[in-house]
Every structure is written in C-alpha cells, then in structure tokens.
Amino acid sequence: MRRAISDTLVIAERNLIRLPRAPELLIAFTVQPIMFVLLFRYVFGGAISTPGFSYVDFLIPGIIVQNIAFGGFVTAIGLNEDVHRGLIDRFRSLPMARSAVLAGRTLSDIATNCLSIAILLCTGLIIGFKFSASVPEIIGGIGLLLLFGYAFSWFFAFVGLLVSTPESANSVGFILIFPLTFISSAFVPVQSMPSVLRAFAKVNPFTITVDAMRHLWVGAPAGGYVWQAVLWAGGIMVIFALLAVARYQRATGG
C-alpha cells in the first residue's frame, strides 16, 4: 500500500514536470480559458439576460465547470502516448504498483485543475465577479469542482486508452463533451432554450453541477443540487474508472 502511494506520486510528479515542456498544453490551461471568459463576458454577455444576476456572476461558475471537465484531456493524450511509445512497457517491467500508472495520471490532473481554477477565479474577480457566499461555501465549491474534474479525468483516461492516436483522443473527448457543456445552464439560462433542448439541459449533469456551483458561490436557490452534483460526479468516476482499468489491462496485454 505504501509502495502504491509512493509509486503513484512518482508518476504524478513526472506528469507535472513534463507539462511546462509541452507549451501547447500549457496554453490550453492558461491563455485559452482567460480568452473564453473575456469573449463571453464582453461579446455575448450584453445579449444574454440572466434575471437576478449580473452576467459575470452567472458566467464564472458555469465557465469554470466547463473548463474543469476538460482538465483531464492531458490524461487522454498522455496515456495514449505512453501506450504507443512503449513507456507503459517500461513501467510494467518494473516491480512497481500496477495501479500507479492510472492513479498517478489522474492525480496530476488534480494539480493542473487547481491551477485552472485559480486562473479563472482571478480573471473573474478582475472583471467584476463577486462571491455572495461564506468561506465554507466557497471552499465547498472548489471541492465540488475538483471532484467533478477528477471524475472526468477517468473519462479521459478511458478515451485515451481506447483510441489509436493522441490527436484522436483529444478530438473524441472534445466532440463528446463540448456539446454537453453548451446544452446546459453554463452560459445561458435553460429557460431560453427550445423545449427539446431545455428538457435535455435540465437533466444534464453539467446543468446540475453548474447550478450547484451557483448555489454555493453566488447564492442561487438550489434545493438538492449540491448532493445531486456530488452523486453525478461519483457515478461518472466509478463507471469510467472501471472501464479505464479494464481497458488498461487489455491494452497492455495483461
């Protein structure tokens, strides 16, 4: 057990060391989210009516949830490269804990997700976002975001092991997740959507998570959303962790 933890940390550390050396990845974590916040706030913001909230207060929880869901794409790309460049063979020939490759991979996403959250929050605060929440609620929101992000890391781990190139890992993840994040309450109130989309948006886990975040950070009324969001994240995590582990065992001929 002790060995499993230390091996996981070694792998996670390795993933973090290599991140700054792949500049395109770093840009995806820093410049790109800031750009989206600014575009939404200043280009669409004026045209979207969000009763009860200023648009920036409405937007920030939504856009952070969207971003965090994509945080795991590094896992998809990284795992895919490891499998196809033979690095997994090196790991598997070592007397290390078998679980450490996947666990370390997803663990390092938590660190990069923290970075994303910090960058987006700072940007938000600069352009006028205000919390109306207690400190425990703010922290609870960050916790929910990290849990949600971790769940999607497992989704991306599965995708990365499933497809044959890092590029397709990236685009499969993008094609599956991107529409989901838009047909939700992340950027516009669901009431403004046509009825079919609205029905979908209401049960979309993104809506549930975004609404939970708004409840925690800007005091939106939210009933059972927080618990539902936690359950969704837990469910996504368990299902994709099982799929990813099974896929990993097959992909590595174990």
């Binding site: 390795r14 060391i17 290599r18 460049r85 033979g86 690095l87 090196r90």
Partner: peptide, 10 residues
C-alpha cells in the same frame, strides 16, 4: 525494448 522507452519530455 525494441523501441526506446524513454519519456521525450523528461
């Protein structure tokens, strides 16, 4: 192994 298993970014 047949294909050098080193991490390119390390």
């Amino acid at each position: 192994g047949q294909y050098a298993a080193v991490d390119e970014n390390l």
